[in-house]
Design a protein around this nucleic acid. Structure first.
Lengths: 355, 355
DNA sequence: CTACAGCATTAGAGCGCTCCAACAAATAGA
DNA sequence: TCTATTTGTTGGAGCGCTCTAATGCTGTAG
């Protein structure tokens, strides 16, 4: 397991260590003959350069640190994919840590990432206080994704949550809905702009808003719907897809049909929403694009091409699937949102066919 | 952004660089007085040790490389969580790469991880040929998760797929099912043991097996069910949860009720299965445990506590939710699995209530 | 024949750290 | 008192690499 070094390769190829270094870095000022000899020796020894030694000697880092607040959320997986694509293409390596949505753990993760002296840091929806982020930004370039900041030293990449919710409201209004409730995300990141967008969009249509406090989970969505029983709106805009799925489930348990009785819109367009079993109308965030832009912003700074902070605000888009329809359903029933029209047949309502 | 070094701290504290090094590594043979002085100087300068320089000088690595074949799969997220827990606890850092389920990309990811000279490597369900894994194992300790191997140099952590499927078959048989089909995972990892387990379990109950070729996606599950229309078994065991959800969706589209007409069992117990809207009976793999065991196996090797390979085969468990019932449903209807009893009411069947 | 490019190649210092041997200073044993 | 032992501290070599400046070596011109 003792791996060969440049010295070994140099000895075998009958050249100096410096020459091997040049070959490894693809320098043009090496004769073809020597290059071939070096490459051959390296191949025979199974040599590959030592990234850490290289980084130490060159005083430059080809590592980007990524802190993912929550690996379980598929949202971040796609962002990381975007990051990875750009990073790999530009010869950077990713080192990933998780923060587990706890400030203490995130702070440790940050420390650990910084100890590698990365060229830059990407923080995905971090929950640590802004001061910690500022401290990190003193040491290296930082880009924030799915979290805004006023720090001059950090770039940010976010989706325009106000606009996203506006798309949802407009869609429902164009279908003829008037009573549209919003199950909000409470203290969660990005919950505030979405709430603001909802209120503004409702106002612009001259409609009465109804914000129901909720959270980013399916259980919370179900609970919120249970609180609405007896006075159900004709449409619900959830704070995210999980919440929406929970809401749908509770609606069906209560005998409402989706979308005939109640339309539901999610947010995020997770893979969940695309499942044909769920087929949720939702708002798509260009997640991969988040990652790409974050990586590019970082690399611009790393290369010293930019000093001023950049704030990307990406346009979300509406993805219409099967959980939205005209009030009363496509068949043009009563528009009354009154009491549950009927009870589920038996057992689980959400798998039930009909008869 | 030029960060202070040990030299700076030493100068400020009025001691030698070596003493600072001792303090940073928590050596007991430092007087309290000096220790305090060093710590104070470090604090004032905002010093933190350079992980790469440390690793280079000490010729030891505190880095574990992790290759995740597919970040989108929440399965791996939990494994990584388990890894992370153990690694952090033992003072190791994780550096994560993705392989994107492509041998070429995985090979590159492997190279990149190895260039950091990690103490060990954890490969989550890699798709590269065994030879590549062997080559990696020449350079560092390797643990394979969700992929088996006969290589003497690598440890493996897997679930006992045969046993998992047996649990599913037994469960269905105990409910009274006789016609139980298996939608298999084709070439996918772990598909083979699951198929084997299914065949063995069916044989042990004296039942006729029916393997339908499929894949690990919801679309494939739906397609497989469509192929069964007109001659539907009373129960289906899917190769994973996604496949099961696709199957359920197609069943409902065709007018079958789940679980009254057809019971469905998934595999993996993903968060998807737990959604109340889906509430899928499935087989749980102890994913977090996978990660913990993998990390521990690796660290044992790193510390030189073990030479012989270890093969962990974890026991999966059955999680009964709402997609399985006695044939004919709980209400005790006809057990005939004949033709679709009726057509979906209108539009999407899967959100429909009844009337 | 010397001069001077131009080029491929190399010696050597140094990146920030660890670790070993060496060393004072204090303590103990004779 | 002198020698051992212990304890705390330090200089210096070296981890595997990069990078600068210097080297040798052509070939062409004066």
């Amino acid at each position: 397991m003792a791996r060969p070094t440049m010295e070994d390769v140099a000895a075998r190829a009958g050249v100096s260590r410096a020459l091997v270094s040049l070959v490894m870095r693809g320098s043009p000022k090496v004769s073809d003959q020597r290059r071939a000899a070096v490459l051959k020796a390296a191949e025979e020894l199974g040599y590959s350069p030592h990234a850490m030694a290289r980084s130490l000697a060159s005083r430059t880092s080809h590592v980007l640190g990524v802190m993912v607040s929550d690996l379980h959320n598929a949202f971040f997986a796609e962002v990381v994919d975007g990051l990875d694509a750009v990073a790999t293409e530009q010869g950077f390596d990713l080192i990933i840590n998780t923060g587990g949505r706890s400030p203490a753990r995130e702070r440790r993760a940050l420390q650990s990432l910084l100890s590698f002296r990365p060229a830059g840091l990407v923080l995905l929806s971090p929950v640590v206080p802004s001061a910690d982020i500022g401290r990190a930004a003193d040491q290296t370039s930082v880009v924030l994704v799915a979290r805004s900041s006023r720090l001059a030293a950090v770039d940010t990449v976010n989706d325009d949550g106000e606009r996203g919710i506006t798309l949802a409201v407009d869609h429902l209004v164009s279908l003829g809905h008037k009573r549209i409730a919003h199950l909000d995300g409470g203290e969660g990141t990005q919950a505030a702009p979405r709430r603001r967008g909802y209120l503004a969009a409702m106002a612009s249509h001259g409609l009465v808003p109804q914000v129901v406090s909720s959270e980013y989970t399916d259980a919370a969505g179900a609970r919120a719907v249970q609180g609405l029983l007896g006075d159900m709106p004709t449409a619900i805009i959830s704070c995210n897809d999980f919440n929406a799925v929970g809401a749908i489930s509770a609606l069906e348990d209560a005998g409402y049909r989706v979308p005939e009785d109640v339309s539901v819109v999610g947010y995020d367009n997770t893979s969940l929403a695309a499942l044909r079993h769920i087929s949720l109308t939702t708002i798509d965030q260009p997640r991969n694009e988040f990652g790409r832009l974050a990586a590019e912003a970082l690399l611009q700074r790393v290369r010293g091409e930019r000093e001023e902070p950049v704030r990307h605000l990406l346009h979300p888009s509406l993805v219409v699937r099967s959980t939205t329809a005209c009030p009363g359903g496509r068949v043009g029933r009563s528009t009354s949102p009154a009491a549950p029209p009927n009870l589920p047949e038996a057992g689980r309502s959400n798998t039930g066919g009909t008869s």
